[in-house]
């Protein structure tokens, strides 16, 4: 399984640095906000957690439609389905690789963008931790969307439409946790634990649902 993880990561690096593209997209989204909202530093620092989360959400959706597309094109999808490992485990690893290539770079880039948006160090820390805990859920839910639309020639848009409503809870609790860390009466631990719970929950259910789907489209 570690071999598959290595292979997936190597493949996506060779495919043209999706990590870099993701971070660039993240940067683009974040820098569009000051244009729309206006260069009011106070307002921006207030909005910063939400901006960073939305940017991460959109950037993580990138490349989801490619998750199984390559296997579909070269026919190795059937091999994935028929190999001796449980298919759900393979999909789990693939989703994990997707997260390492899109989600993790965003987490690492967060301090930079946080400083640009005038976020306090505590806020940056809270944003990083919640993104670290929350973005894997996007990849795991996205794997279901990718599996569902693997047969669609023009599925890219549809994946986003289907996956975005499902990741809204992650967004809600993620931003709630950051607010909890920054403002006194609101709690941090409870929403943060909810984020962790959603990620763990989807890490099991997402690959399972995707494996049902892929097994069907293979036969």
């Amino acid at each position: 399984m570690t071999a598959l993880l290595k292979r997936e990561i190597l493949l996506s690096i060779r495919a043209g640095g999706s990590a870099l593209t993701g971070v660039l997209f993240f940067l683009a989204v974040v820098s569009v906000f000051p244009f729309a909202v206006g260069p009011d530093t106070k307002l921006l620092s207030h909005l910063a957690p939400a901006i960073l989360w939305i940017g991460a959400l959109l950037a993580s959706l990138l490349g989801l439609d490619r998750l199984f597309a390559q296997e579909r094109e070269d026919g190795s999808l059937d091999m994935l389905v028929m190999q001796s490992h449980p298919l759900a485990l393979t999909i789990f690893v693939k989703a994990l690789a997707h997260w390492i290539m899109t989600g993790l770079p965003l987490v690492l880039a967060t301090p930079l963008f946080g400083v640009m948006l005038n976020l306090s160090p505590l806020g940056i820390g809270a944003t990083m931790i919640t993104l670290l805990a929350g973005t894997p859920a996007i990849s795991f839910i996205g794997a279901v969307g990718a599996a569902v639309s693997v047969k669609l020639p023009r599925g890219g848009m549809l994946i986003s439409v289907l996956v975005l409503p499902l990741v809204i809870p992650v967004l809600i609790f993620g931003v709630a946790a950051i607010t909890g860390a920054l403002e006194d009466p609101a709690p941090f631990t409870a929403p943060f634990l909810f984020v962790c719970a959603i990620t763990l929950f989807t890490s099991v259910l997402g690959p399972l649902a995707a494996s049902i789907m892929l097994r069907h489209s293979a036969d």
Partner: peptide, 30 residues
């Protein structure tokens, strides 16, 4: 939004019987 997404998904396949399982999986995920 979930309803509308599912309707869009049900119309996205050329062969309606192929949409059955994707629709079902997506509905349950929702």
């Amino acid at each position: 939004i979930i309803y509308l997404g599912l309707i869009a998904l049900s119309k996205a396949f050329d062969e309606p019987s192929e949409a059955a399982l994707p629709l079902a999986v997506m509905t349950l995920t929702g």
